[in-house]
Design a protein around this nucleic acid. Structure first.
Lengths: 328, 328
DNA sequence: TTGTAGGCGTTATCAA
DNA sequence: TTGATAACGCCTACAA
């Protein structure tokens, strides 16, 4: 294993100079820097993760907390994780994937929390390291999310432009921030267009949405679009319409939300609001590292400090469940 | 932070004794052990990951290599990862999730490799740490997998017992070990029952399976069961049958393979061969740690050493795409 | 601007 | 069986 010392010898300097070239390059003359870089290169030097952590009295470990029942684990976690991992790897941080149950075993430098519901915040509050949440929240925690309101604005206004007359919103029966934002995006867009909003809500299961469509089939005139708060619901709607013999997308349109995996599984493939999950994962890691590096007890306590909220713009992917897919 | 030293003082012993209590308890008298345990407990001592790694000249990092295009990432990865993470966390190992591209950045103690295809083995061969693969292979690497042959034995023989007359196997067009095993399980079971096997193969996409069903609809008599090599294919079959107006499960049965996520998304829900993905994840981690702890250059080189192959028995989940779901 | 000394928490080695 | 010492690779603090 190549160490600082080896590089130092090769470059004919002390190991502190090498260390400085890495961590405080501005304190070293260009001349020496060149020598050191050359030596590092030739020896293929890679800093030792553990030694770094030990000396700095940090762990260089980030915990990714998944607050969902294990058997429910949504497919987007895999993608989110890839994004997180990418950034972390590049900055020599290791990852620990945990559930709430075993989250307190062992130390770490910071937390990424996903799937947090309102009743999780008691627990989250007790964590004593920097935290970034995946998902907007009303508890004043820093977060990264896609712009949920803008997302349903996109799908709702597309439905309007496509000429659907009746536009129904299928929401998730959950008193969570992201759901409110999605409903708001729909409401605002409808109102601006002078259209009558109509919202129904279910648990996030395709079967409930399907059942709803079948039970209320007579209420839907041709030329109706269903704007959904998730692809799961959208798939249920699609099945319900197919079962009742409705024509997609000519007479009935469907727009989903999420754009991870499920939208591709559906047939016809879903028009959906796609979240850039991978990029969001990287951003979360980036923000967390930023917080870790600035971390000071005062800063953390300061009620006036600015809250970090990063919203990614989702994108409307037009596919085969809304009319003008041929424009795509 | 509580260190070995703190515990040692509290227990009135040297820190080496404390260290031994943790790592070589058989070398310490019961008397002292009790004292040390008590002190550790009272102080809530947790060993320092980085210090351990530094002293032992290891990294205590395991790389999980995902060899798939990022946008394809299958949902089961999330579940597998939870299994791996669970074991690793319990043993103070950290995880690094990487793709092939960035797998060589930074050191590690071992590799877990998933999604390896035949053309990946050139690269895998160059890795110089213990390796466990997820998935059987013909390259003599240690692996954990579900018993693929047994899996299709289960689904095929259930189809026979359910009284389906014609039993068609839909395979994945891939020259990979797992696919051969699944086809073999079907073939053997058919032959033993004196039935005529019939195999067709596609890329692993639901649309291809659906198309096949529609194109060949006239060839399938009522009382046919489609045994599939993946839930993706099974979903396609289900759609094809529905489109053609076939009756599931009375006239046409479907059995999938995998049992992660997709089987639940289908409607009717799929009868499928479920792999215990979470448990397999834990087992992979366990085997890898075992290898790491025994690791010696000779052992690794020894061509006679026993290959580790752990097969998990999958389970047939009877749901609504085969006849006797009411038995469930 | 550069170098020296000491310490981070743990473990292997050797001595008692 | 137990304890003292040195080492792992890096970084901070201080000295030159």
């Amino acid at each position: 294993m190549v160490t600082l010392n080896d590089v130092a010898k090769a470059a004919n300097v002390s190991k502190m100079t090498v260390s400085r070239v890495i961590n405080h390059p501005e304190q070293v003359t260009d001349e020496l820097k060149q020598l050191v870089f050359k030596a590092m290169d030739e020896l293929d030097y890679h800093p030792n993760f553990a030694a770094k952590a030990l000396a700095a009295n940090t762990t260089r470990i980030i915990k990714l907390v998944i607050l969902e029942k294990v058997d429910t684990v949504e497919p987007y976690y895999a993608t989110l994780l890839m994004g997180v991992a990418q950034f972390l790897n590049a900055h020599q941080y290791a990852l620990q994937v945990v559930t709430q149950k075993n989250a307190n075993i062992g130390d770490c430098d910071g937390y990424i929390i996903t799937g947090a519901r309102n009743n999780d915040f008691d627990w989250i509050q007790d964590l004593d390291r920097p935290i970034i949440l995946y998902g907007e929240n009303r508890h004043n925690y820093d977060f990264v999310d896609s712009d949920n309101k803008y997302g349903t604005f996109l799908s709702t206004s597309a439905a309007i432009n496509d000429g659907y007359q009746q536009i129904v919103f299928l929401g998730i029966e959950l008193k969570e921030s992201f759901e409110y934002s999605r409903e708001r995006g729909y409401m605002d867009t409808m109102q601006k267009s002078g259209l009558q909003p109509q919202i129904v809500r279910f648990g996030n299961h395709s079967s409930e949405a399907q059942q709803y469509i079948q039970d209320h089939w007579s209420e839907f005139k041709k030329n109706t679009c269903f704007v959904c708060s998730s692809d799961r619901l959208a798939i249920g709607v699609e099945r319900g319409i197919q079962k009742m013999g409705g024509n997609i997308p000519e007479d009935f349109g469907i727009a989903g939300f999420d754009g991870v995996f499920l939208d591709q599984i559906a047939e016809p493939k879903l028009t959906t609001v796609k979240q850039p999950v991978m990029a969001m994962g990287s951003k979360i890691a980036e923000l967390l590292m930023q917080k870790i590096n600035q971390a000071s007890p005062e800063a953390e306590q300061n009620p006036n400090r600015e809250r970090m909220e990063v919203m990614f713009s989702p994108e409307l992917i037009r596919r085969n469940t809304t009319r003008n897919y041929h424009l795509n």
